[in-house]
């Protein structure tokens, strides 16, 4: 009989066991612990104590922390995912950074369907900070944020710094300043997207002959009708949970006002098109003591930044920034 089944058998007889250091203790109704059961407990003591200790450790584990690449000796990276809470957005970057770079994703409450999502950036950051400090109390950290998760990463780094933690590097990947998520900005963005689509169609029509234009319009109409008549996709419970987390995070982003961060922020922009004045990714410069920019290749767009084929380039930029930041933090030679 395996340990769990044996313990279940004891429980059904109202016999309770627990580990107390190396000792196995138990309490039973008077006369309930028969000599046979006592012999079995003695024989299996080591396995039972180990089972109970592991169970206790699991009960207290930091459930937000997902070890994407747990090996290595460098300061661990804790990565906040985008607003849907999908930590796998970092899987290729974790692979690219190699075996000596521990990389942990931070999963917000709600993605697992066991808890309600949080609607405050400060609360999300505090939840992650507590989990990180419990999981790795004594180490310097690297904090990253992807897309909307950049705002949570910013607040997380700020809170960790306030609590006396050492942070080697804070990297925000394609992360706009949170005012972008306010309704006015969202509306402006939607209008800009529509205008860009109209312009793209106009350019396409202008570059074609009359006959080709008719075919182009007919094809767009066929595509539109196909989309409209397509049967609705079967509901996906995982996507439904992510959508709920996404909605809660957007509520938090709209309310959040970043406070001063007394450290350096490293901003990773998809391409140099984002370097213009007024770029929502550069507005972080207002609230950090120091910032620096890293820019991806021209063909890289925000959604693709941490995916192939761009992720090797982004990983190289990240390594360069991380290593330079770590060298600066080393004590200077006498």
């Amino acid at each position: 009989m395996i340990v769990s089944a044996f313990l279940q058998e004891l429980r059904s007889r109202d016999i309770r066991v627990w580990a107390d250091g190396d000792q196995l203790r138990c309490t039973a109704p008077a006369g309930g612990l028969t000599p046979e059961l006592r012999d079995q407990l003695r024989e299996r003591k080591t396995d039972i104590v180990q089972f109970l200790r592991s169970a206790q450790t699991l009960a207290l584990q930091q459930r937000a922390i997902v070890p994407l690449q747990p090996q290595g000796t460098r300061a661990p990276i804790f990565g906040v995912p985008g607003h849907n809470g999908d930590v796998f957005c970092y899987r290729f970057l974790a692979q690219q950074l190699g075996d000596d770079q521990p990389f942990f994703g931070l999963q917000p409450p709600g993605v697992d369907g066991q808890r309600e999502p949080l609607t405050s950036i400060e609360d999300l950051a505090a939840y992650f900070a507590a989990q990180i400090l419990a999981y790795r109390p004594d180490t310097p950290y690297v904090i990253t944020g992807y897309c909307a998760g950049g705002t949570i990463a910013f607040e997380l780094a700020r809170q960790l710094l306030e609590q006396g933690a050492t942070i080697h590097f804070v990297a925000l990947f394609t992360s706009p300043y949170p005012t972008v998520y306010r309704p006015g900005s969202q509306l402006r963005q939607r209008v800009a997207d529509k205008v860009e689509r109209v312009n793209a169609h106009a350019r396409a029509l202008l570059s074609r002959s009359n006959g080709e234009r008719r075919e182009y319009i007919a094809q767009r109409l066929r595509d539109w009708k196909a989309r409209r008549n397509a049967p609705p996709a079967a509901p996906d419970p995982v996507e439904a949970l992510r959508a709920k987390v996404q909605a809660a995070t957007i509520v938090g982003l709209r309310r959040y006002a970043p406070r001063h961060f007394d450290g350096r922020l490293s901003l990773f922009l998809p391409n140099k098109g984002w370097l213009h004045t007024g770029s929502p990714m550069l507005r972080w410069r207002r609230v950090a003591r120091e910032t620096e920019q890293y820019v991806g290749p021209d063909s890289c767009h925000g959604d693709l930044m941490l995916l192939e084929p761009h992720v090797p380039v982004i990983a190289d930029l990240f390594r360069g920034g991380r290593d330079a930041a770590e060298r600066q933090l080393l004590p200077s030679p006498l």
Binding site: D14, R16, D20, Q23, L24, R25, C26, T27, A28, P29, A30, G31, G32, L33, R38, L41, R42, K45
Partner: peptide
């Protein structure tokens, strides 16, 4: 435990 504490025995192994 379901039974009363007073009616129980405790052991250490």
């Amino acid at each position: 435990p379901a039974s009363d504490a007073a009616e129980r025995e405790e052991f250490a192994l």
